[in-house]
């Protein structure tokens, strides 16, 4: 681990009881959902992590507990450091509809960029952010069913048409209505 990064990681570890992993020089800190706003604020104000470079998620389906990792990639310009925060969360709660989605607190109050990135996560993974000022889909059209980057969302494809199955495929190809 980078010598400049070590005291910061120790500090977070002690204060928030976090665990960490290291791979190829990158440090991943594991936190609980309710801690994220405090940790981000602390890192921004006291440790000069001015830039939230990326905010994304990973789906570990069919694993359910935790199913997702929400990932915050932070960059410090002043100290030239990187740190990744990961929040393991479970999948959908029982029930259907928007209320059953996993929820974590929003980071829009700490970093402005979190606004669009959290909308992207809501759109792509169906993860809700409590207190988000503008919870709409961002990339997919309004009214889309499902969340495309979840692993249980099928990747569609079109069957290639050859001479032997040309008519058969042509029959069930979607066409615009007359």
């Amino acid at each position: 681990m980078d010598t400049k990064l070590e005291p910061i990681v120790k500090n977070i570890q002690q204060k928030f009881n976090a665990t960490f992993e290291e791979f190829r020089g990158e440090v991943h800190l594991f936190l609980k959902p309710e801690q994220i706003v405090d940790v981000l604020t602390l890192l921004r104000d006291e440790h000069h992590f001015e830039l939230l470079s990326a905010l994304t998620a990973v789906d570990y389906y069919p694993q359910t507990s935790p199913r997702f990792h929400v990932i915050y990639q932070l960059t410090s310009l002043a100290k030239n450091l990187s740190l990744q925060l990961r929040i393991p969360i479970n999948g959908n709660n029982p029930g259907v509809g928007a209320g059953s989605y996993p929820r974590i607190p929003t980071a829009t109050g700490v970093y402005g960029v979190a606004n669009w990135r959290e909308r992207e996560l809501l759109d792509m993974f169906g993860i809700e952010f409590e207190g988000h000022p503008d919870p709409r889909r961002i990339l997919m059209p309004e009214g889309t069913e499902g969340h495309p980057l979840r692993k249980d969302f099928p990747l569609g494809y079109e069957e290639p048409q050859f001479t032997f199955n040309f008519d058969e495929i042509g029959l069930h190809k979607p066409r615009p209505k007359e």
Partner: peptide, 20 residues
């Protein structure tokens, strides 16, 4: 089974991949 984050300076800014 691990994740990396690797960034370059593209003409528009930090272009990065998080690859797991």
């Amino acid at each position: 089974r691990a994740s990396v984050y690797s960034a370059i300076e593209s003409p528009r800014g930090e272009l990065a991949l998080m690859l797991e």
